[in-house]
Simulated scan of single mutants.
Amino acid sequence: MDASEAMRVNRALNKMSKLYRAAKARKLATLGLHPGQDVLLWILAQEPEGMTVSELAARLGIEPPTATRSLARLEGGGWFRREPVATDRRQVRIVVTEAGHELLPAIEGAWAELAEQAMGDATDEQRELTIIALERANDRLRGLVDEAVLAEE
């Protein structure tokens, strides 16, 4: 790849990353969420019995203190509750409440709207090729960075 093409790729990816995050932040703000909190709630909701902070952190690829801080920021929404773990007093299980489950369709709707807006009038074939190219790029880049960096997204 020549320098001109490399510049175009870098510029496009940087701009898309910034714009996507900003657009996602606006959509999630209407739900009372910040980027990252949507994924955290969605992952928690996939486990009917809930999960410990350590399990959640592992699933998100972040450290437990980071998961604890993220949960603290979400605390006021009433979207989850903390339950003691009978076998370990130091642990709590985070369980999504009914209010949290009711928020999931809106989260998924925001994701769908954002994806639709980002893809625009691309044909089904163009969408599939774009997704494949992005997934392959992600796979290649994943090997270059620490997984903890990905959790910040």
Rank of each mutant, 00 (worst) to 15 (best):
E75K: 15
A118K: 09
R82W: 00
A106T: 07
V85W: 08
I107K: 01
F80N: 02
E128T: 13
R90Q: 10
E102P: 03
M119K: 09
I107P: 03
R69K: 11
P105T: 11
R73Y: 12
D124E: 11
R69D: 01
L114V: 08
A133F: 05
A110T: 07
V96S: 03
L114M: 11
G78D: 01
E128G: 10
Q91L: 15
A99G: 09
L71C: 05
E102R: 15
T68S: 12
I107R: 04
L103A: 09
L74N: 00
M119H: 07
A118S: 13
L103V: 06
L134N: 11
W111G: 02
I94Q: 00
Q117L: 08
Q91G: 04
D88P: 03
Q91P: 04
L71K: 02
L71E: 00
I132F: 07
L103Y: 02
R69Y: 03
E75G: 12
I132Y: 09
R127D: 00
R69T: 06
A112Q: 15
A106E: 11
A86C: 05
A122N: 07
V85G: 04
R82F: 00
A110R: 06
T123E: 05
R73F: 12
E98A: 14
A86N: 09
L129Q: 05
A86S: 14
L114C: 06
R82Q: 00
R69W: 02
Q126I: 04
R89E: 07
T130V: 13
W79V: 00
Q117R: 14
A122K: 12
T68K: 10
E75S: 15
A115H: 12
A86I: 06
E75R: 15
V95Q: 04
A72G: 13
R89T: 06
A133T: 04
F80K: 01
R90N: 10
G109C: 09
L134E: 09
H101V: 07
M119V: 06
A118Y: 06
L103H: 01
G76T: 03
L104Y: 03
A122Y: 04
E102T: 07
E102H: 13
A133C: 03
I107V: 13
R136Q: 13
E75W: 14
R127T: 04
R127F: 03
Q91D: 10
E98P: 00
G78S: 08
T97C: 01
Q117N: 12
A99H: 06
E113H: 11
L129I: 00
G120C: 10
E75N: 12
R89L: 04
E75Q: 14
I94H: 01
E113M: 09
